[in-house]
Protein backbone atom coordinates (compact mmCIF):
# COMPACT_ATOMS: atom_id res chain seq x y z
CA UNK A 1 0.00 0.00 0.00
CA UNK A 2 1.56 3.33 -1.12
CA UNK A 3 1.85 6.42 1.04
CA UNK A 4 -0.72 8.13 -1.20
CA UNK A 5 -3.27 5.36 -0.61
CA UNK A 6 -2.74 5.61 3.16
CA UNK A 7 -3.05 9.41 2.95
CA UNK A 8 -6.27 8.99 1.00
CA UNK A 9 -7.80 6.72 3.68
CA UNK A 10 -6.62 9.13 6.38
CA UNK A 11 -8.27 12.03 4.49
CA UNK A 12 -11.59 10.16 4.39
CA UNK A 13 -11.31 9.34 8.11
CA UNK A 14 -10.45 12.92 9.18
CA UNK A 15 -13.23 14.30 6.96
CA UNK A 16 -15.75 11.90 8.52
CA UNK A 17 -14.56 12.87 12.00
CA UNK A 18 -14.85 16.63 11.37
CA UNK A 19 -18.19 16.42 9.59
CA UNK A 20 -19.51 14.02 12.26
CA UNK A 21 -18.43 16.36 15.04
CA UNK A 22 -20.15 19.36 13.40
CA UNK A 23 -23.33 17.37 12.92
CA UNK A 24 -23.23 16.13 16.52
CA UNK A 25 -22.64 19.64 17.86
CA UNK A 26 -25.39 21.07 15.68
CA UNK A 27 -27.89 18.54 17.07
CA UNK A 28 -26.62 19.01 20.64
CA UNK A 29 -26.96 22.80 20.48
CA UNK A 30 -30.50 22.43 19.11
CA UNK A 31 -31.40 20.12 21.99
CA UNK A 32 -29.84 22.23 24.77
CA UNK A 33 -30.84 25.75 23.71
CA UNK A 34 -34.22 27.15 22.79
CA UNK A 35 -34.92 28.11 19.17
CA UNK A 36 -35.93 31.64 20.15
CA UNK A 37 -32.55 32.16 21.76
CA UNK A 38 -30.57 30.67 18.88
CA UNK A 39 -32.41 32.86 16.40
CA UNK A 40 -32.36 36.01 18.50
CA UNK A 41 -29.67 37.78 16.42
CA UNK A 42 -31.05 40.98 14.98
CA UNK A 43 -29.56 42.88 12.10
CA UNK A 44 -28.40 46.38 12.95
CA UNK A 45 -27.98 45.58 16.65
CA UNK A 46 -24.79 44.46 18.30
CA UNK A 47 -23.36 43.85 21.70
CA UNK A 48 -20.84 46.71 21.47
CA UNK A 49 -23.74 49.11 21.02
CA UNK A 50 -25.63 47.38 23.82
CA UNK A 51 -22.60 47.59 26.15
CA UNK A 52 -22.13 51.28 25.32
CA UNK A 53 -25.78 51.96 26.05
CA UNK A 54 -25.56 50.05 29.33
CA UNK A 55 -22.48 52.06 30.34
CA UNK A 56 -24.21 55.30 29.43
CA UNK A 57 -27.28 54.25 31.43
CA UNK A 58 -25.05 53.33 34.39
CA UNK A 59 -23.41 56.77 34.40
CA UNK A 60 -26.77 58.49 34.49
Amino acid sequence: MSIWTIASYAAWAISALLLGWMLFDLIRVGAVYGEDFLMSAREGEDELLQEAEEEEGGRK
Binding site: V32, Y33, G34, D46, E47
Partner: peptide, 19 residues
Protein backbone atom coordinates in the same frame (compact mmCIF):
# COMPACT_ATOMS: atom_id res chain seq x y z
CA UNK B 1 -35.02 30.24 26.52
CA UNK B 2 -32.97 27.94 28.72
CA UNK B 3 -31.14 29.15 31.78
CA UNK B 4 -27.96 27.58 30.47
CA UNK B 5 -28.14 29.76 27.42
CA UNK B 6 -28.49 32.95 29.37
CA UNK B 7 -25.76 31.92 31.76
CA UNK B 8 -23.33 31.08 29.01
CA UNK B 9 -23.91 34.15 26.90
CA UNK B 10 -24.34 36.50 29.80
CA UNK B 11 -27.08 38.24 27.80
CA UNK B 12 -30.51 37.34 26.56
CA UNK B 13 -29.69 37.76 22.89
CA UNK B 14 -27.08 36.30 20.55
CA UNK B 15 -24.99 38.29 18.10
CA UNK B 16 -22.34 37.43 15.56
CA UNK B 17 -19.02 38.20 17.24
CA UNK B 18 -17.56 41.64 16.45
CA UNK B 19 -13.87 40.83 16.41
Amino acid sequence: MSTAATAESGKDRLFLLKV
